[in-house]
Structures are given as C-alpha cells and as structure tokens.
C-alpha cells in the first residue's frame, strides 16, 4: 500500500504542531470510520496520518445543569450510554443510538463525524437543533463556531487548514423541553435519506417558546429549517403539520441517487419534521 507516516501525539499541543507542520499532506484520524475505509479502498492515500486517539482529555462527556460538553473523541456509544443525558438532553443519546451498529458506535467518534460532514450523517442535524458550539483549535489559538455556521457544503465545513475540532458545547435545555431525532434509513448503508432532529421548549400555555429543527440527508449539507421554526414559535402541537410543510423550503439543491430522488427527499424532510416535532412537543409537555 502507499506508505504513510503515522503520528500518535499524546497531547493536543503536539497534535496541533503536527497538523500545522504537515498541512494538506496530513489527515487527522479519530475513530477511523471515514478515513480508514477510504484508505482501504485506495480512494485516499494521505502521506501523513495523525492519530488523535491517544490525545488525553478529548473523550469526556459531561452533562451539567448549564452545559453539556462532548469531547471530540467521545464515541457515539459514550453519548448513547451516558447516565445523565437521557434526563438532561435525550436528543443526544437518541441520535447516537441511530448511528450504524454497535461496533460502529463503539469506535466512531462524535467529533470525527462532525468534522467529516457527510451530507447524510446523523449528528449534524442534532447539533443544529441543539445550537451546539464547536470548539476549534488552530494556529492562532482557539475559537468557537456555531453549528449553524459550521456545515458549509458537501463534506465542507468551516474548519480551516491547520485547525482541529476539539469539543462540542451545548446549553443544557431548560425545563419543559423535549427533543426527538427520527430518520428514514437508506436500505443499504443505514445513512439518512432524510433525518430530522427537533428540539422545543414549551411555555406555560403549552405552546412552543422556542423551536429548532435540523435536517440531514436532504441537501449537500445539513441545515436548520428556519421556516418551520418561524411558523411554529408561539404555536402548539396543532400547528406542527402546517409548519412541517416548510421543512425543505429554501433548499436549492437536493441529494439524489437511485435510492431516493430529490423530490422524495424533500417530502421525507416534511414527514420526518412533523414526526420529530410531534414527539419533541410530546416529550416536552
């Protein structure tokens, strides 16, 4: 096989040094569920692989009263099985449980999936619905970027050369909140033909004080369905069906292949938005 240099830094600092030193020649390895298959299929041949697996401190998941943090190297399973998340923010473990199979969830990482930005991955939808902040380390220090500014295009994120995603921060949802992630699986790969994450907070009257909807699988990048959110704020469950009809508004280009046309994906976005919102409101009440 094409030889490559393998580096396994122990600290984030040394990792960053390597990332900057090798630039475009290097690929960062987290759980290895995107890069390794590509290399095995000889569709990718980076000359340097920087394995973050040994970097201390990037695997932790915490769920506080104010903030939930997920280290970039936390596995999907670490989120799925976290003791406190079901009560603090059930949308996170629910999303994790929808990814791949048990083996994939035990190796694959949340940060790896987000940085990879597959247009049909599950996490982007949920991160958008939770208004997650992504912590990024780079040559000029650290910065944070909102999920809604992060997913730019097909496999393209706001990450710049020399930058590494280090963690995810999410404001712990207040009382009377609920979330849901539902998707239709592509029958072969299990990736989302359409996946919708919804997170709502209800006011005292049982109407939506806040609504956030993230959609994956439908467009080249996951997106926030703002039109849905605008239509539902201040409204109750009766308004969900009408609001969900806007789930694909503003999408200029749809993903399409022999599994599903663009029209069908747009339709699925609406159906699953309605389902996600109904469940989310139900759970919030």
């Amino acid at each position: 096989m094409t030889p490559f240099d393998y580096h396994a830094p122990k600290t984030l600092r040394s990792a960053m040094r390597l990332v900057q030193e090798f630039g475009d020649d290097a690929k960062v390895l987290a759980g290895g569920h995107s890069l390794i298959p590509s290399m095995k299929l000889r569709l990718a041949a980076p000359s340097v692989v920087i394995d973050l697996g040994g970097v201390a401190g990037l695997k932790r998941v915490t769920a506080g009263n104010e903030t939930i943090t997920i280290g970039a190297l936390a596995t999907h399973y670490a989120v799925e099985s976290h003791r406190l998340l079901p009560s603090k923010c059930s949308l996170l473990p629910e999303t994790a449980a929808e990814i791949g199979d048990a083996q994939v969830r035990n190796r694959g990482t949340v940060g790896g999936s987000i940085a990879h930005a597959d247009p049909a991955a599950d996490w982007p939808a949920t991160m958008l619905a939770l208004d997650a902040q992504f912590d990024i380390a780079g040559p000029d220090g650290e910065r944070a970027v909102a999920a809604s500014d992060f997913f730019v295009d097909l496999f393209i994120t706001d990450l710049q050369p020399g930058e590494v995603l280090t963690g995810i921060r999410i404001a712990t949802p207040p009382e009377n909140s609920g979330g849901a992630y539902v998707k239709m699986r592509q029958s072969a790969s299990g990736f989302a033909l359409a996946g919708v994450a919804a997170q709502v907070t209800l006011d005292d009257a049982g109407n939506c004080a806040s609504v956030a909807v993230g959609v994956t699988g439908v467009a080249p990048a996951a997106y926030r369905a703002h039109a849905v959110e605008d239509a539902l704020v201040g409204q109750g469950i009766d308004a969900v069906a009408d609001a969900a009809a806007h789930a694909a508004d503003g999408v200029e280009e749809f993903q399409e292949d022999h599994h599903a046309s663009g029209d069908y994906r747009a339709h699925l976005a609406r159906v699953f938005t309605q389902r996600a919102l109904s469940q989310a409101i139900d759970r919030a009440a």
Binding site: L41, R42, L43, P119, A120, D153, L154, I156, Q186, S189, F191, P220, E253, Q255, E256, D257, H258, H259
Partner: peptide
Amino acid sequence: GPIAAVGQRMHASAARLMTR
C-alpha cells in the same frame, strides 16, 4: 473504475459541488 462502484450517492452532488 473504483470510484464508480463506491460512493455512488455522492457522484451527482460532488460534480455539482465542483462546478459550483
């Protein structure tokens, strides 16, 4: 070739991304 047999779901979007 090899890229045709895998990642088929990406071909159209990738082509459009590149033209974009």
